[in-house]
Design a protein around this nucleic acid. Structure first.
Length: 216
DNA sequence: CTCCCGATAT
DNA sequence: ATATCAGGAG
């Protein structure tokens, strides 16, 4: 398992590789960001960004999402996948935002989690990106990279991964770190065939050294 | 744990 | 053909 200073070294290397790591989901308001992140479950950011321009032009307020039938909203997001659940969640979310939060997305992580389709990961992205609250959203990339490097254990839950990262990384670096981990995972330490041979983190990486030994 | 699910990369 | 993608709910 990596200690704090080893993790700090990893983060420095990631910063060199991806100095401008940022949220890649297109949005202009906290409400749009929440919808975009909800849509991004089990689907690439690039695909979400293909539907949101037309979506956000058509639906600007929570009321707009409730002004059409469920079937029409499904059709507008069909190419994303999981569209039945997502369309239903968006309409319920819109209803709740109007009734319980007077039309605007709550800024509190635990309040956000009460919205349908919004779990801990999505809530962390929203508070971090839209409201500037330090948070580490653990998505598939952050989980994979943390486990490969040896920041946490393979059997750890996503919540344990998040807690470990928060414990071992200074709070003021949480949000920047979360984006660097995502870029590192998305563009370099990929799920399939990671290029460990040319990885600057190889000397620190548990999985990388193992893969080199096994000639993967 | 399973289900939801289309697009894309390998 | 199969794996994966900024997960969440039942």
């Amino acid at each position: 398992m990596l200690n704090k200073s080893q993790i700090a070294l990893c983060l420095e290397e990631m910063e060199k590789m991806f100095p401008d790591a940022h949220c890649e989901l297109h949005h202009t308001t906290p409400f749009e960001l929440t919808i975009a992140v909800l849509l991004s479950a089990q689907c690439t950011d690039a695909l979400v960004n293909k539907v949101t321009p037309a979506l956000f032009a058509k639906y600007k307020t929570p009321e707009d999402y409730l002004s059409v039938s469920l079937e029409e909203l499904q059709d507008d997001i069909r190419s994303i996948g999981l569209y039945r659940n997502k369309a239903k969640n968006i309409q319920k979310l819109a209803e709740l935002v109007i009734k319980e939060y007077s039309g605007s997305i709550p800024q509190d992580r635990d309040e956000l989690t009460k919205l349908p389709g919004v779990g801990r990961k999505t809530a962390n992205v929203v508070v971090s990106v839209a409201f500037g609250v330090p948070a580490i959203a653990v998505d598939t990339h952050v989980e994979r990279v943390s486990k490969r490097l040896g920041i946490c254990r393979w059997k750890d839950s996503v919540l344990t991964v998040e807690e470990t990262l928060m414990k071992k990384i200074p709070r003021h670096l949480w949000s920047a770190t979360h984006h660097r981990l995502i870029f590192f995972g998305r563009y370099h330490c990929k799920a399939q065939n990671p290029n460990c041979r040319e990885c600057p983190l190889l000397s620190l990486c548990r999985e990388g050294k193992k893969r080199m030994k096994d000639k993967l």
